[in-house]
């Protein structure tokens, strides 16, 4: 028996919009810790890890650890039928091959049930090692989204370099080249407008912009994004989900041949 009641149902809607273009089918894991997912894109270049902690739900009942295979496009279709202010409850019975999403309007005058078929997914779970990152950049998520979008009109890859001068995003393409440098800026009115750069060692890595642009679909989840970089390791692009958890995207770097 599974029953997860999320008062801020819009969070789940936003999570699906953030990941459904990257991953087609995925197993959602439910345990005492929370509702989570780990999945790779079809080419195994990027990985998404989601955690919605049990404490963030108004009601959280999960009698035993369960893994439920879902088609994210179908799940997104169903969640789009929930209003932005709706309370969403996820319900499942042991041994059932379906899951039910219940949407309640804030005034309780409309209650809808959507039943979705589950699927068997043979997915690989990867162990993500704890890493010491050479540099961690915290910046407004909208700014990061803008940079990725702007650069992708010039080139296909972005070089992200962190030095003591700041963080530089560079690209090069047939029509020319572009460099965008952000300096640390903590003298802002609101903390969510700050750019904070922690650097232990200078680092420079190259990534495919197509994936970065896909990650920025998580922008509505959080005003800030954290980008953690280490030489020859996948970058981590993290969007925190208010008081509940996170969506983390890992992207393998492009390596010089």
């Amino acid at each position: 028996m599974l029953e997860l009641r999320l008062v801020q149902g819009s969070l789940l809607k936003k999570v699906l919009e953030a990941i459904k273009d990257l991953v087609t089918d995925a197993n959602f894991d439910c345990s005492a810790t929370g509702f989570s997912l780990q999945a790779m894109d079809s080419s195994h270049v990027a990985l998404v890890a989601l955690l919605l902690r049990s404490e963030g739900f108004e009601h959280y009942r999960c009698d035993r650890n369960i893994s439920m295979g879902m088609n994210l496009n179908n799940m997104s279709k169903m969640l789009k039928c929930a209003g932005n202010d709706d309370i969403i409850t996820i319900k499942g019975d042991d041994g059932s091959d379906t899951i039910t999403f219940m949407f309640e309007s804030p005034t309780q005058d409309k209650i809808a049930d959507f039943e979705m078929k589950l699927m068997d997914i043979d997915s690989e779970h990867l162990g993500i090692p704890e890493a010491e990152y050479h540099a961690i950049v915290r910046m407004p998520s909208a700014e990061f989204s803008r940079i990725c979008k702007d650069l992708s009109s010039i080139g296909d890859t972005v070089v992200i370099s962190v030095t003591k001068e700041g963080v530089k995003f560079s690209t090069r393409g047939d029509i020319g080249a572009a460099n965008i440098v952000l300096r640390q800026n903590t003298t802002v009115d609101k903390p969510e407008e700050a750019t904070i750069i922690e650097m232990n060692e200078p680092v420079s890595l190259t990534f495919a912009l197509r994936y970065m642009n896909s990650f920025t679909k998580a922008t509505p989840l959080s005003s800030m994004v954290t980008i953690s970089l280490s030489s020859e390791l996948p970058v981590v692009v993290e969007y925190k989900i208010a008081e509940m958890g996170y969506v983390r995207f890992y992207l393998a770097p492009k390596i010089e041949e």
């Binding site: 790779m40 195994h44 990867l126 993500i128 190259t206 996948p234 890992y250 492009k254 390596i255």
Partner: peptide, 14 residues
């Protein structure tokens, strides 16, 4: 030129 690496090169299956 540069080559796209895979995530499975860095993280092991568990």
């Amino acid at each position: 030129g540069s080559k796209q690496s895979m995530i499975t090169t860095f993280f092991n299956k568990i």
